[in-house]
Design a protein around this nucleic acid. Structure first.
Lengths: 288, 288
DNA sequence: CATGGTTACGCGTATCGTAAAAATG
DNA sequence: CATTTTTACGATACGCGTAACCATG
C-alpha cells in the first residue's frame, strides 16, 4: 500500500471510472488498471465493481477511501510543514471572496511576497461557504471570509473591518439595478438584505467581475452599488459618484481570515497574520 | 515523500547510522544513502549530520521523524483494518505476561484459532509495563496485563480473576527460596509484596520459565511458589503439593485485556473479547 | 586505519505507453 | 455497438547489489 497507489485509488473513486482518472494522474488508463489490481491483490478483495458506466466502490472500497483520503491529507500536511521548516518556506494556498480579492488583497499580497519572497502564494476566489469547506478539507491553508466564524472548527483573525456605503450616479433613477459581484459575495448579501428590509425584493441585479467595472457602470448611471467606503473614495473618478450611508445594521462588514486550528501554521501564514494584526500604515513607516 | 522513504528514514533514525539501518531494511547500505538523499532533495535540507559515530538527526530530521512515525503508524493501522474488512481477517498481535501465557492462554488461543482460522495470531510476552507501552505504540493490538488499568488511555476487559495460593513441598524448609517467573510477572510481584509484609525481605528468588518447571521444583522440595490455584490443582502430581491460602489482600489477582481505545478492533480482536466475556465452561459445552 | 558514508556501474525487473482484445449494458 | 476495462508486449528507467572510492576521528 503505497502512496501512489492510494492517489490512484482516490482519483478513480472521485472520477467514477478508470479511464476518467487516468488523465488526472497524468498517465494512461492501463496503468490505472494495473495499480488498482495491485491494491486489490494486497488487500485480498475487490475495491470497485466494474460496469458499463465506470467503476463503483465496493464496501471494502468505501472503507479504503476513508483511510486513503485521511492518509493522503496527512501526507500533504506533513510535507508542507517540512518544506516550511527547511530552507524554502511552504507554499501558501490562500482563499478569498472575490470582493476581498479585488479590494484588499493587492496591497496585502504585495507586502506578503516582499516579506516571504520564497513562498509561492496561490489564490482561490469563491463564496464564503465554499472557502470554508476548502479550508476544512485542507485544500486551502487559510481564507478571507465573511464573519462571524465558527470558533469550534476554525481559528480566525479579523482581517478587515469595512464601512459599506451605497454609491450611485448623481442622477439616480428609480428603477436602477444593483450592480454587484457574483453570488456568494458578502457585500452582495448585505445589499440584498438591505433591499429586502426596504421591501424592494424586485430589484434587478447585474453581476460583474471587478469593482472598477461596477463603479464605472455606476458612474455611467446604469445602477447603484454597495461597496466598501475605502474602495469608493479611491475610485479614480470618485467625485462623479454620490455616496450615501447604509443603515448601521448593514454598514459594518467584517472580513475574517480563517484556518483550521489543528493544522500547523507555515511561515508565510504566520507572516500574513502579522501583517493583518498590525495596521497597514505602520507597515509603510517601517519600510520607508 | 514515499512510504518506503519514510520507513528508511525512521530505520536510520532508530539505528543511529546508515549502515546499521540497512540490515533492518533488508537491503544494502548504499540504498539507504540513495533514499535518504532523495528525501533530503525533496525537502530541501539535510536530515542527518554524518559523522564518525553514525548519523545524527538535524532539527529538520527531528521534525520529519515526528511526522514519519505518525504517518507510518497510521498506514499500518489502516492496513490492518482493511485486511480485516477483506476476506482474510487481520493478524492479531497479542501480548501477555509470561505467567498468563503459560497458564491461561493455551486454552484461549486454541478456541480463538478455531473461531478465526484465517487470522494469524502472534504472541509477545513481557512484563506489564512493557506490554502497555507496546500497545500504546500500536505495536500490539491487545495485551493481557495485571490490573488495574488506566481507563483514560486504554480500553479493557477483565480477562481472568485468579485466586493465588502458595504451593510448597510436604516437607517445607525454613530457608526455602521463592520459585517464580522472571521479573515483571504479576504473580511474582504479589509474592514479593506478601513476603515484604511478613518482613521476609531476604528470601532468595529463583527464576524459571515455565509453570511446570516451577511446580516440579516445588514438588522436589527446592522451594515454594505463588501461583494460580487452578494451575496448581491441575498439576499432574498435585497431591504431592501442600497448598495454603494467601492473606485476602494478596490472594486475588485480576488480569485485564487492554487495548487502545482509539484503534479499530479487528475481527479476531472482537472474537477474543467475546471468548473472554463468556465463561470458558460454556464454551466447552457448546463444542461438545 | 578502521568505521561509516558516498559514488560508479552493471543488471534485473517494475512500470510505463501503445495497441489490440474482451467484457458489459 | 459504443464505452470501459483487461491483457499483451516491447522499451525505458528506476532501484537493486557489488565494489571501489572518500571522509573523519
Amino acid at each position: 500500500m503505497d502512496r501512489q497507489l492510494l492517489k490512484t485509488f482516490v482519483a478513480v473513486a472521485e472520477a467514477g471510472s478508470f479511464s476518467a482518472a487516468a488523465p488526472r494522474l497524468h498517465c494512461v488508463q492501463s496503468n490505472v488498471t494495473t495499480r488498482i489490481k495491485r491494491l486489490e491483490d494486497q488487500l485480498g478483495g475487490a475495491l470497485f465493481e466494474r460496469g458499463r458506466g465506470g467503476a463503483q466502490l465496493t464496501q471494502l472500497g468505501e472503507r479504503l477511501r476513508y483511510h486513503a483520503e485521511d492518509l493522503l491529507t496527512r501526507f500533504e500536511a506533513a510535507e508542507r510543514d517540512l518544506l516550511d521548516a527547511a530552507s524554502r518556506s511552504a507554499p501558501l494556498r490562500l482563499g478569498a471572496m472575490e470582493s476581498t480579492a479585488a479590494v484588499r488583497l493587492p496591497h496585502l499580497l504585495k507586502a506578503l511576497t516582499q516579506a516571504c519572497p520564497t513562498a509561492p502564494i496561490s489564490l482561490h476566489t469563491g463564496p464564503t461557504a465554499e472557502l470554508l469547506s476548502l479550508v476544512w478539507q485542507q485544500k486551502l491553508d487559510a481564507a478571507f471570509v465573511a464573519g462571524p466564524v465558527d470558533a469550534s472548527r476554525f481559528q480566525s483573525l479579523v482581517g478587515f473591518r469595512e464601512t459599506l456605503v451605497m454609491a450611485q450616479a448623481t442622477e439616480p433613477s428609480a428603477t436602477a439595478p444593483l450592480l454587484s459581484f457574483r453570488s456568494g459575495c458578502s457585500y452582495r448579501a448585505v445589499a440584498e438584505a438591505w433591499l429586502r428590509s426596504l421591501g424592494k425584493s424586485d430589484t434587478r441585479i447585474l453581476d460583474m467581475g471587478t469593482l472598477d467595472g461596477i463603479l464605472g457602470c455606476v458612474e455611467a448611471g446604469i445602477g447603484f452599488a454597495v461597496a466598501p467606503q475605502a474602495a469608493v473614495t479611491a475610485y479614480r473618478n470618485a467625485e462623479a459618484l454620490r455616496v450615501s450611508a447604509l443603515p448601521p445594521a448593514f454598514a459594518i462588514s467584517e472580513t475574517h481570515l480563517v484556518w483550521r486550528q489543528d493544522s500547523a501554521m507555515t511561515r508565510a501564514h504566520r507572516t500574513l497574520c502579522d501583517l493583518i494584526a498590525r495596521p497597514e500604515g505602520e507597515e509603510r513607516v517601517s519600510v520607508g
